[in-house]
């Protein structure tokens, strides 16, 4: 029987291991950004290589792209690890006991592959925003806010979000099981990237607050992930997770009584 601690149901969906992993990555990122005020990774850079180069110039590290890629993975892990609690739990329940760790490993690797692949696109997007800002005379951050809010309100985003709640259809045996875990990781990574990427323009266009914004965003996206699916339609709920906060608050209040 699983232990029943009087925690709000919402919080009990989280995995302590993944939260700890995420927190460690945040500490590393925070430590890095203190030493590196204009955080190379989160300021608009033409591409990953120059981001890495900026980093390596300061630290004197020879490797460039590798360092940048590692930093990027660190950031992805910090922001998204807690959100993987549910899919990993679903995956493990549907895997044979001796395959559980292998399945989880394949899923996580495939998931990270997607993020490594979309990294260069995402990191060059701020340049497009800057060009747009120059053309329209609006601040780049304002343009990023408009893009993020529009996407947040869009029915398409909600249907992508709904798909995140689907339980994986996994084979149990042999190479089919491996293939399905990889496919699940790729799909989940793509869905996650599609859901989160536009909001990530915010920290990317506000270098001064990038870390704080990233942290706030990842908490909000994590909360949003806990809300149940709903019919895709245009919505005024443009802050991720805003529907969850009052529930969480009431839940915590009752738990403490």
């Amino acid at each position: 029987m699983s232990p029943r601690v009087p925690l709000p149901a919402l919080l009990r969906q989280a995995s302590p291991t993944l939260l700890l992993a995420s927190l460690s990555c945040w500490v590393l990122l925070a430590a890095g950004s203190e030493e590196l005020p204009s955080a190379a990774l989160c300021s608009p850079s033409p591409n990953l290589v120059t981001a890495g180069a900026a980093f390596s110039t300061i630290y004197g590290v020879g490797a460039t792209a590798t360092v940048a890629a590692l930093l990027w993975i660190l950031m992805v892990a910090a922001m998204t690890a807690p959100q993987l609690a549910q899919p990993i739990a679903q995956l493990r329940l549907r895997s044979l006991a001796e395959r559980r760790n292998r399945s989880t490993g394949l899923f996580v690797a495939a998931y990270l592959m997607v993020w490594i692949a979309v990294g260069p696109i995402l990191l060059t997007a701020p340049n497009a925003v800057t060009v747009l800002a120059g053309a329209t005379g609006l601040p780049a951050f304002a343009i990023a806010v408009v893009i993020a809010v529009l996407w947040q309100a869009a029915p398409l985003r909600q249907s992508v979000l709904n798909r995140c709640h689907r339980v994986p259809n996994l084979s149990a045996f042999g190479t089919a099981a491996d293939r399905d875990c990889i496919r699940f990781g790729l799909t989940h990574g793509l869905l996650c990237a599609a859901i989160c990427a536009p909001a990530m323009l915010l920290p990317l266009t506000a270098p001064a607050f990038h870390l704080a914004l990233m942290f706030a965003l990842s908490v909000a996206l994590q909360l949003e992930r806990l809300a149940p699916p709903r019919p895709p339609q245009w919505t005024w709920r443009v802050v991720p997770g805003q529907a969850v906060v009052p529930v969480l608050f009431r839940s915590i209040r009752w738990s403490m009584r």
Partner: peptide
């Protein structure tokens, strides 16, 4: 139904 509370599961 994909948009329903079961996410079409």
């Amino acid at each position: 139904q994909a948009g329903g509370p079961h996410a079409g599961d």
